[in-house]
Design a binder for these strands. Structure first.
Lengths: 137, 137
DNA sequence: TTACGTGCAAATCTTTTGCAAAGCA
DNA sequence: TGCTTTGCAAAAGATTTGCACGTAA
């Protein structure tokens, strides 16, 4: 049993070809810190000769999100991007000039977020921190 | 000359009825910490008997954004919400149960973001910090 | 007057849904 | 086999665009 299959089984999803293809692609992309939209996933798979339908990509990504395998982010207007979930929380710097995305980790901010949630008497489930920047001259 | 007109003139936008209506509405909404979508603006205006077209709302909001009068946020999937720009930076807590939005301000996080931008040698233009929470039991 | 702005309808883009056929356990 | 998943086509939701008419300066 491959690692993808284990992950899928763990969250109660039946092992199907589309799910495995998409999970593997996300693994590759996440290793490279790439953030992909549903359309991106679809085109990557088509380009390598895989056969898949766009609605299936949307459905599978939504299932992965519900299962906690994947995190959906609203970094841009009009479309969601996805990355494999990981214990290693990180945030994003988005360059307004190049649309390049840089990931960063910061303990001070992470800790402070927890404190703020506590102050408001709510349970912190997730967070999005995006710094929109331009390259300094 | 009313204050709305001054603001519009300041950023080089001609004073027109739709722009004034939308600006006033945003002023009211922002005072109440409401975050409105283009559709929301459209329906609020229709409800109070104003005549306006939805494409105009989208166009005016985009113009206001370019002019720096309003900030566009991607708090949810699939649609943008807008609020009047202000010097007083704040961030958002979004309740996943009720979709309620709470604003908060935190100097520690603000300062830390500046430091992170400096470390990456980029100029911080804007940021979005959203804490997604559930009500603690 | 004259360039700019608006409204309507239609187009576009992203995402979702209905349903018949195919696939996994 | 039986229930789940997929693929296609079509629908839906958000946003944008083309164009003729209206309006601020």
């Amino acid at each position: 049993m491959t690692s993808e299959n284990l992950e899928l089984r763990k969250v109660g999803l039946k092992i199907t070809l589309p799910r495995v293809k998409i999970f593997k692609l996300l693994e590759t992309m996440s290793l490279q810190n790439e953030h992909v939209s549903a359309e991106d996933v679809y085109h990557h798979l088509l380009k390598r000769g895989e056969s898949i339908g766009l609605p299936t990509v949307y459905r599978v990504l939504a299932q992965f999100e519900s299962a906690g395998l994947v995190v959906r982010r609203h970094l841009f207007k009009g479309r969601s991007v996805f990355e494999l979930a990981s214990d290693d929380h990180h945030d994003h710097i988005v360059c307004l000039d190049s649309s390049e995305i840089i990931e960063f980790r910061d303990h001070i901010i992470e800790r402070r977020q927890q404190e703020i949630a506590q102050q408001h008497n709510v349970e912190l489930v997730d967070h999005t921190l995006v710094l929109y920047v331009r390259k300094s001259n």
